[in-house]
């Protein structure tokens, strides 16, 4: 079992340029079925051993694609997401950073009544370790098969947390990068729900950051969870009112601060880590206490 992807997942890569080609190759080397690429006007070509089609619709019909991985540049990315949704792709993962927020307002509205799920944008993607299923940009070497799920707004902090876990001999069921933008398809709370329901996952690392109220909403759900959650909030030392790289990482108001988020998570029963280098060690202690390690 796994979250969002498994060994039967068939990935279409939208935007088969440099990054798309490289990550298609990396995914395939890991064992993931990368079935085709979509670049309008290039249909019928074969690039890097990958058949290219003009539309996502063709990718679904011909290859049974059921996961879309999007690298399309920001001005065209919302269109690419909506194309995948219209083609009925159940899991749409958008890596692209820098999509105008008002484009995402429209996308979010469409996703609301949709059977498709959007992950991202501005995210590192999804991996299911035991299934060797990877749609994203994460380095696979740091992962180890096991039972901890990792959720994060930041890409590089996923790698960091996974690396710390692996060095301590704690494997992972998978990771979901929900994305660093203000408007994202799948919230931290929804990602928690997925791992809570996954029989292959025993515990969860949740990595939030300053800005917005998504961590407080996640905390509301953590109150009801059976599995232990270890949480870290990035940006405790960031000055208010400044955008820290991620478009969503800006403190506007009291709820956006790291301390407000930490307090909400702690009150909900999560174990909150103060230093980002203690994520792995804290999870080890939590697992030992719960008799899971």
């Amino acid at each position: 079992m796994s979250v969002l992807m498994n060994r039967n997942s068939k990935v279409v890569v939208q935007g088969f340029g440099g990054a798309g080609q490289r990550e298609a190759a990396n995914g395939r080397a890991y064992g993931t079925q990368i079935v085709c690429g979509v670049t309008p006007g290039r249909g019928g070509q074969v690039i890097e051993n990958t058949p290219i089609r003009n539309t996502v619709e063709e990718a679904v019909k011909e290859f049974g694609a059921n996961v879309s991985l999007i690298f399309v540049p920001a001005p065209f990315a919302a269109d690419a997401i909506l194309e995948a949704e219209a083609a009925g792709v159940p899991v749409i993962i958008c890596i692209t950073e820098g999509i105008p927020v008002l484009d995402m307002v429209k996308v979010k509205r469409v996703m609301k009544g949709s059977k498709s799920r959007l992950i991202g944008p501005n995210c590192p993607g999804v991996i299911s370790v035991a299934e060797h299923a990877r749609a994203g940009i994460m380095p696979v070497d740091v992962y180890m098969e096991g039972h901890v799920g990792v959720i994060s707004r930041s890409g590089t902090l996923v790698y960091e947390a996974v690396d710390q876990l692996t060095r301590l001999g704690i494997g992972q069921s998978g990771s979901v990068g929900v994305g660093g933008d203000p408007i994202i398809g799948t919230s931290q709370r929804e990602a928690l729900e997925l791992f809570e329901a996954d029989p292959d996952t025993n515990a969860i690392v949740l990595i939030g950051e300053i800005g917005g109220t998504a961590e407080q909403e996640a905390a509301e759900y953590i109150k009801t969870m059976k599995k232990p959650v270890v949480a870290f909030i990035g940006g405790a030392t960031a000055p208010p009112g400044r955008r820290m790289g991620h478009a969503g990482a800006i403190i506007a108001g009291a709820a956006g601060t790291a301390s407000a988020k930490q307090a909400a998570l702690r009150a909900a029963g999560a174990t909150v880590v103060e230093s980002p280098s203690n994520i792995g060690q804290t999870m080890l202690e939590v697992l030992q206490k719960a008799g899971l390690k």
Binding site: S152, R153, S154, G155, T156, L157, E160, G180, I207, E209, I210, F232, G234, G235, A236, T237, A238, M244, G245, H246, A249, S275, P276, S277
Partner: peptide
Amino acid sequence: GAGLAMATMDA
């Protein structure tokens, strides 16, 4: 990465 950059400041 923005997240790692913020976490580095925190560390």
